[in-house]
Nucleic acid binder design. Structure first.
Lengths: 251, 251
DNA sequence: CCAAGTTGTCTAGTTCAATAGACAAGTGAT
DNA sequence: ATCACTTGTCTATTGAACTAGACAACTTGG
């Protein structure tokens, strides 16, 4: 061991970043070791008391760090038993009938969709072309955060014609589902026409919303959904947490 | 503006990262804008009260953020006048006579060297070859943090023969200078024999010591110093904060 | 010199991170 | 069934972050 000059160097001090809370440092430390593959899926973390002792920290502080890991979808805790690593990913099947809530429910999880923001804006050329509108036409823009079992899965920016669906935001905020929102407008069956998948990294905003660090990988999914008669309904640009989702494409 | 669902979204909320203090977020924000070149050297920051208003935050919080920027060597504050950006770098001339304290003093700053850690260890083949020892020979290893005007400039790992300089660590801790430490052993004139410069990025440990973010650029300086008779004395591996230092090589 | 503007310092109060200890509730193996 | 072990919850305390307001000390330009 290196002998350190400043003071008694418990493992606690080696973590301490100025202005960053202790529990956050511990959570980040464990996230690294988990993401780097040191723990297999389902592996058990050391008991809280042991982690606390190792870092020279109170058990409550460790509990808070673990709660953060849970919110990030990295671990699951079982009372009386222990804390277990979750590195398996949600299989997200992309096909003609792609409905977030159905996919998540089929996997045995609780789906949730929250409207983070919305506005009316003139359509860019790109968006207008997708929706079959003139460039500059009024469109509704929705920012939607989707989660499975309270763990954020994706953030999506969705555009719809403001003329046809003027109150889409208000209705979505109540019903929390695109499918049910369109149902209000009499659209009963809509289908995915095309999907474009690329990759990138989280920026500060998406990282916050998805409870990820900055510079984590994301899957960027652009898509167009059309009505039964082929008329464009909505187009979307979703950013999926690649640490938590795998996209399955039918072939 | 996007209408946000959760709550009133002042600019303050857009910064808030869970587990990170407000002042730290503000400091990081300003560090980014400074490092990205938005401010010229010597440019004046907005007054504290204006920054506070902009973020919807108390002035004391802003003061703390600015103090952090000062500690990182990015700004200098002048009472009654304002806060000014410092992006100029310390010119660090590398020659036969390379003495940290002399270089810093010549630039009109206050030099400081602190021993962060030390130990005896067997020399690696590389280190042994440099020092003219057998591989595995006992060497003293020092971890030294150097600063100019309290701003960290470099961290260096230095190796000396443990047989010849057994108490190097103890003496350095008192005298805080390699030159004066060697003087105790009767070495009055020593000279740089070779210097090897490469580049890299901060790891978590060096970032903390140098008060830098992780993944900031560093200059890696490996070197060998010899006595007047050509006998190897010490070899070193320094990591210099590239944001704060420019190396000047005589030709 | 004067006045406006800016940084430095002080006091006071609220909120929350972290510590400390104790006990309840649940699990798993003997 | 019992016992050791683990997670969940509760209370209480300390210290730091952040807010709020006021005033002193200093700089700059007119």
């Amino acid at each position: 061991m290196l002998t350190r000059t400043p003071r008694s160097s418990s493992d606690k001090n080696s973590l301490l970043a100025r202005g960053v809370m202790l529990w956050r440092c511990i959570a980040d430390e464990y996230e690294q070791t988990i993401l780097v593959g040191k723990y297999e899926n389902g592996a058990k973390l050391p008991p809280e008391s042991e982690i606390a002792a190792r870092y020279g920290v109170n058990r409550h502080t460790v509990r808070r760090a673990i709660a953060e890991l849970g919110a990030r979808g990295l671990v699951r805790t079982e009372r009386g038993s222990g804390t277990y690593v979750k590195t398996d990913k949600l299989d997200y099947r992309i096909g003609q009938r792609t409905r977030f809530s159905e996919i998540v429910a089929a996997a045995g999880h609780e789906a949730e969709g929250r409207l983070q923001g919305h506005r009316h804006e003139p359509a860019s050329e790109e968006i207008a072309a997708r929706l079959g509108l003139k460039a500059g036409a009024d469109v509704v823009r929705l920012e939607i955060l989707r989660a499975a079992d309270r763990v954020p899965i994706s953030v999506a920016t969705t555009w719809l014609s403001a003329q046809r669906y003027p109150d889409a935001a208000k209705i979505f905020r109540q019903l929390r589902s695109i499918t049910r929102t369109l149902d209000r407008y009499g659209i009963t069956g809509y289908a995915r026409k095309w999907t474009r998948i690329s990759a990138g990294f989280t920026d500060a905003v998406d990282a916050g919303r998805l409870r990820l660090s900055v510079h984590r990988p994301i899957l960027v999914v652009e898509s167009l959904d059309v009505a039964a008669d082929g008329e464009p309904i909505l187009t979307s640009r979703g950013r999926f947490a690649a640490d938590r989702v795998a996209l399955i494409v039918e072939s």
